[in-house]
Design a binder for these strands. Structure first.
Lengths: 131, 131
DNA sequence: TATTGTAATGTTATATTATTACATAATGTG
DNA sequence: CACATTATGTAATAATATAACATTACAATA
């Protein structure tokens, strides 16, 4: 629940809401320094919490973080993204299907599925048209 | 072709061959310091090349690198891994199927698939049995 | 309201991962 | 050999992330 976010957590969530783009931890830090947050630790703490509750996801290959606009994101820890290889625009995909599919794959390899991280790179329509 | 790897590239590929586990750049650096390699730059350069030719893949969520044992890996830039969430054992999955599937998803979103990065987390059999 | 326990914050330092920029050496080709 | 190209070496620094510990805020309850 967003209501019980702490002061710092709300601050940083707001930075995401305003930008609606993937952000890096130190970009966020620079944004909130005006508001009194001084150290990376504080940012990373908030990011951790926001990730735990599924409001923010990390894009591993980019070391960046993206707000989740799904009202109640299923992807607490599992995430699937489409990333444009040219302009870096990123879209999150909802994915019950993926989880089921990946669970089966895990079974084949004698593993118990817990979560996944999927990044699909491709050229978005506007970048395709620019050529 | 492995034959036309440079001296440093071969050195570092050998470190992977000996360990056969995911390695971090600075772990590699410590290993090869005996052999005269002194700086991270040198390691990262070799890693870049090894990744380009598909002999090594990066595991983004771990900032680590893994040798690819497929004789001629299809996954030059696309990779799919199973990662044990407990012991961190990692297995690479070959995946023509994935690429096809992800291409279709890209089409649905008006994108042209280029590559992907998939990390499926799950508990491996030996970790399951330990409980 | 005083006490006390917990969660949140603040602060400093440092670890880890990766790149830039530039200098030097080695190697192949005309 | 001369020259271009590729590989190496070297130093500095940027970018990302965590550890450790001090302080404050705040709610529960005696």
């Amino acid at each position: 629940m967003i209501e019980d976010l702490s002061h710092n957590e709300k601050l940083i969530l707001n930075v995401f809401k305003k930008s609606n783009k993937p952000l890096k931890a130190y970009q966020i830090l620079f944004q909130v320094q005006k508001k009194g947050i001084k150290s990376p630790t504080q940012v990373y703490r908030a990011l951790d919490k926001l990730q735990e509750i599924g409001k923010v996801h990390k894009i591993e290959s980019r070391n960046s973080y993206l707000i989740c606009n799904n009202t109640d994101c299923l992807n607490k820890s599992s995430v699937s993204f489409l990333i444009c290889n040219l302009c870096e625009k990123i879209v999150e995909i909802e994915d019950k299907l993926f989880s089921n599919h990946f669970s089966k794959i895990c079974e084949e390899f004698n593993r118990k599925y817990t979560q996944h991280n999927l990044e699909i790179f491709g050229t978005c329509i506007s970048c395709s048209e620019k050529k």
